[in-house]
Simulated assay, not measured.
Amino acid sequence: MTDTFKAYLLRESEDRKVSGAFEDVAVSDLPAPSPEGGDVTVRVAYSTVNYKDGMVMNGIGRLVRTYPHVPGVDFSGTVEASDNPGFTPGDKVVLTGWRVGEMHWGGYGELARVKGDWLVKLPDGLSLSRAMALGTAGFTAGLAIDTLEGAGMQPAEGEVLVTGAAGGVGSVAVALLAAKGYSVAAATGRSETHDYLKDLGADALVDRAALSEPPSRPLNKERFQAAIDNVGGSTLANLLTQISYGGSVAAVGLAGGNEVTTTVLPFLLRGVNLLGIDSVMCPAARRQKVWQMIAETLPMQKLDAISHSHPFDELPALGKAILKGEVRGRAVVTVGGE
């Protein structure tokens, strides 16, 4: 192991302005991620750019408490050193969640030191780069589908809606659902994404504007057996009025707002389930199960269509672009490569 590694390091000035730059960081400066320490060191191959990463890199939301800080909420790579009995040097691993990139140093450095309990061994059939083409967004989509199927969603029971369908979570959700045999309706406000969504497997396209207004009545015509909602706000309230009897909505995002004004009638008269999806603190055993399902189900050519690769030095520009809605699908950043 070398004495230093390249990382994108954030610093905070006295007036609390956050700035970032690529720096050579001493390996000895890698902080332990918890009072219990970090028992696995990973040589990072790839990371991604998520909306939360854009916020962190640009000092929005005060998600980071301690500086200097290495952002990057997910990464894939190879174990370099381990004091954890579950991992040995050479193991290929993936990390998403656990407040890495926020409370703990993340994937925008050539090395990362984490707790072994946070790592998932790379499933068979998945490369390190494709693991990050999925990343937090792909894992969240898989977790939402697994949760909905646990609540009774089945391909034969009708249409499934995905809102924010052209984003990272939405894109993977559309492709995964289609691969599992579901009839998928994709909601988007951008007409230029229609062909893209159809290529991923969407059977129907729904105008985002048709869902974004507050519902006009407590119950509307039943249309969807289930939905994966990236938007929240009035879109989620509208969705709840259109879910079929016994159906479910998996809430995964809040791009349209974190407040939902609705009635209890969808729950009382149609038995609708509102299921919260938390990919951050999801237990390790379930993580492994979901990652394996994704690796076995998702056609790799669909994943390749969703993702695009970028060199490490493009990271700052990507962090600004994603906040402007200018990043479609999944942006994979080559940190060290395979």
Rank of each mutant, 00 (worst) to 15 (best):
G61D: 06
V264T: 15
A137T: 09
R130G: 07
T235V: 13
R11W: 02
A81S: 14
I243C: 07
A81F: 03
M293N: 11
A255P: 08
K17F: 13
A295Y: 03
L111A: 00
R62I: 02
A7R: 03
I60L: 13
L315A: 05
T4E: 08
M55E: 15
S279H: 02
P316M: 04
D15M: 08
F139Y: 15
F267I: 06
P68F: 09
I294R: 05
G158L: 06
G20Q: 06
G109A: 11
E338N: 10
M103I: 06
V27K: 10
G72W: 04
G116T: 09
Y196F: 15
F224C: 13
T188V: 02
R328D: 02
A204D: 08
V44S: 07
A305N: 14
A21S: 14
R270I: 03
V264H: 09
T262G: 05
L95G: 04
E149L: 03
D91C: 10
G233F: 01
L95S: 04
E314N: 11
L275Y: 10
T262D: 09
R43F: 07
G233V: 02
G90Y: 04
H310C: 04
R217G: 05
K221L: 12
A226V: 09
M57T: 07
L143A: 14
I322Q: 12
L265N: 11
D53T: 07
C282R: 15
P155M: 08
N58I: 12
G247T: 02
G125W: 00
G61T: 07
W291P: 04
E192I: 02
A81H: 11
E149F: 09
P283F: 06
D278P: 12
R190Q: 13
K320I: 14
L275Q: 10
S234V: 00
S309V: 10
K180M: 11
Y108L: 12
A175N: 01
L211H: 01
T188F: 01
V64N: 10
G329P: 09
T241R: 01
S171W: 04
A317S: 12
L236W: 05
R11H: 15
E149I: 07
T66K: 13
L254H: 11
P89C: 09
A166Q: 05
T78W: 05
L95R: 02
E157Q: 15
G201W: 03
L128P: 08
I277M: 02
A204M: 00
A321G: 12
E259P: 03
D91P: 13
